[in-house]
């Protein structure tokens, strides 16, 4: 995977909400890993559904895309897809660079 930053443009008027938003995404990632380890597909589905809704609302399009992957993977009990999605999410959160406009 690349080390290049992934730029995300967020509305300036949401800037003060973003630190909490990002903290919650990191918590979410931990919860996703734990749920996968436990094989809790229902929790994974719910988490994926939530990511799908909230990500793009703030401007984080990939969070929504990955959320859909997780939701679909959980519905299909597709562990490989879930592992890939979580790995991609991990990489995304490590590289995302927020620009406020």
């Amino acid at each position: 995977m690349s080390d290049q930053p992934i730029p995300v443009t967020v509305a300036k008027d949401l800037e003060d909400l973003i630190p909490t938003f990002m903290k919650n995404r990191h918590k979410e990632l931990e919860t996703l890993r734990a749920a996968l380890a436990a094989g809790d597909m229902e929790q994974l589905r719910q988490l994926g559904h939530r990511m799908k809704g909230v990500g793009n609302s703030y401007g984080f399009e990939l969070v929504s895309v990955l959320g859909k992957k997780v939701e679909d993977g959980a519905k299909a009990t597709d562990r490989a897809a879930l592992e890939a999605g979580i790995a991609e999410y991990t990489d995304y959160l490590a590289r995302v660079k927020i620009v406020y406009e």
Binding site: D13, L14, L17, T20, N24, V54
Partner: peptide
């Protein structure tokens, strides 16, 4: 139940 979504919507409304 998602505080980020609730906060986001509330922010837009207050604006």
């Amino acid at each position: 139940d998602d505080p980020d979504m609730a906060g986001f919507l509330a922010r837009l409304l207050v604006q």
